[in-house]
Design a protein around this nucleic acid. Structure first.
Lengths: 337, 337
DNA sequence: TATATTTACGAAAACGTAGTAGTAAAAAAA
DNA sequence: TTTTTTTACTACTACGTTTTCGTAAATATA
């Protein structure tokens, strides 16, 4: 079962390699009869062109990468799903890399993608990334990056985001309209664009309703579940009065649920909770979780589509635009009726 | 910013391509001084070897693929996470493909991987796959496949599974011990090894406790949420008495929750529910969902590790063994205390 | 001093594909 | 009939890397 390549086909058919290659490409230079012979022999032996050799000729890898910070979050799962479907449609291949929120891993991964392995990258930043040299280098090497969700403002490229500010505003206002007067914001990382925007929405909503923001009500969380639990517990059992929580990501809402369970705080009676989330189980939680649902699948599709749009018109410049796909507020039980 | 390759380095340094290549590989054939010059120039220009050209020389793609049926399930998410971590460790790259439970897509994907693109494949079967020609062909082409979870018995290779039979038995017995006398099994697909094993465990537990299996209590579900909802609703509102449900996968347990919500059937008072699941929110559901939790991350790690074990001793034969990683029954509320 | 060995490099081939250029033979046009 | 065009093929090269082989010069050995 030795590998069947053009040379093998050629020798089997007693023609030249060029003839086989051209016949398979349906070139006009090859006669009908020969084409048929080549095609049927290729089928018979199960010839599949070697992708790496093909790359060597036309320097197109037909491969893109998606770099995400973690896999515990439903959002990224759905983005991958969307991106994969577009890649498949375009007959491209999708490499997946997880940075685990580690800036060094992100740098290593990006560096590994510098020499032709991929034609482009879809990416959401790690929360610990503060230096963007590796990304600039990537752009210098003419490898396009499309950001989604956690974008890098410094890089001029297409960015797929949701309306974080407006949604943060809406989420906070929803809590206010349901009676909350002391709303805490659970932040995930200062470094992240999404966190800043969501918090700005939160602050703007407070301001509109004449509520003063308090630093004590802005809890800096991380990706360590235990420390998040501690911080939220400290908030909810401490001196600061809190009757509403706006969690920037779903992990923090679940941590809140966990704390409330342990402290016997009733949601939504004593505490109303709302968060950005793509949990499929939001409806079945106790109580059902009111969420800002990001169009994750659509964002994956948009990111991949934008990348292919650029790759297809291969001469052009990458435009520097934000593509905004709106999130939806889904009222369930956790923030009151 | 033209691509920096060996040729470019060589001309910059006025040495031959061979010298540069060997210097970068720290060959003894190259003098210390030259090595230093080459290395520093390589760093200066940011040389990264082209992976496809490297492939052309040693015919190792340093890439593996993971082929999964869907992305809506937390199990596969965690498997990818585990597999990616091992791949990263080995400096390999991971391609992700989703069959969307479509046999034809599975065939297309496997065919696309036939000529060298990957060194090996991790795979979980689509539920609609009944013919395994494409997989046999893969093995014939010397591309190793490691199956996990949804395995293919026909192919002689390493398979990573959980103790589906024992867990199915334990799940059913747990329901029985909590008072259920009329237990239904929600099946996902006749084609799947896991479904059969889990159902056998279910039947064995019924038998042990002198309960007769009834076809009416075995509900054939699919991957269509709406039809699943209908089928489960039919079961729970029909003439067949049912006081316990064992769902083979988490989607079916959630569908059951949905039906119970709409029919106002109290879980666990009127109906006890248990299922195979990797939901991170199981604890927060209403009621908390008692689950058989598969060691998904470990299975991903095991699958990738086994593949690399084979790839590393590249001469050998692939062994035909089942590696079983046990699942754990986590008692929460949905199946009674 | 003459010969053997080691050191440090370069030339070239190969991996599989795809395209350019070249060329006999056949067909069409003059 | 001669010339031009078309048809249908082959030879060869390049993509970037790695490695084998070859070889001068330097060094060690006899």
């Amino acid at each position: 079962m030795s590998k069947v390549n053009l040379k093998k086909l050629a020798s089997e058919l007693s023609v030249s390699i060029s003839t086989v290659s051209k016949a398979l490409k349906d070139s006009h230079e090859i006669g009908q009869e020969t084409k048929h012979k080549v095609l049927s022999k290729a089928r018979e032996l199960g010839y599949k062109p070697n992708p790496y050799a093909t790359y060597m000729r036309n320097l197109k890898s037909k491969t893109i990468a998606i770099v995400i910070p973690e896999m515990t979050n439903n959002f990224f799962l759905q983005v991958i799903n969307g991106a994969e479907s577009i890649a498949r449609e375009k007959d491209y291949h999708l490499l997946v890399y997880i940075t685990h929120e580690d800036a060094q891993k992100e740098i290593d991964i990006i560096n590994h993608l510098q020499n032709g392995r991929v034609d482009g990258i879809l990416m959401s930043l790690s929360s610990t990334t503060t230096d963007f040299t590796h990304l600039h280098e990537c752009i210098n090497n003419k490898i396009p990056i499309i950001f989604f969700d956690r974008i890098c403002h410094e890089i001029e490229t297409v960015k797929i985001i949701t309306d974080d500010f407006a949604s943060g505003f809406a989420a906070t206002e929803h809590l206010i309209q349901n009676g909350c007067r002391n709303i805490a914001y659970l932040s995930i990382s200062k470094n992240l664009s999404i966190d800043n925007k969501r918090m700005q929405g939160y602050l703007e909503a407070l301001d509109k309703h004449n509520m003063k923001p308090e630093n004590r009500k802005i809890v800096k969380c991380s990706h360590d579940p235990k420390s998040n639990y501690r911080e939220i517990k400290k908030l909810l059992s401490g001196p600061v009065k809190v009757d509403g929580i706006f969690a920037s990501i779903e992990e923090l809402a679940l941590a809140t649920y966990s704390v409330c369970k342990d402290l016997a705080i009733k949601i939504p009676q004593k505490l109303k909770v709302i968060c950005f989330s793509n949990l499929i189980t939001a409806d079945f939680l106790n109580p059902p979780l009111t969420t800002i649902t990001q169009p994750a699948n659509e964002m994956g599709i948009a990111a991949a589509s934008q990348l292919f749009k650029y790759l297809d018109k291969k001469g052009g410049e990458m435009s520097n635009e934000n593509i905004i796909i709106k999130s939806a507020l889904t009222v369930r039980g956790s923030a009151g009726a």
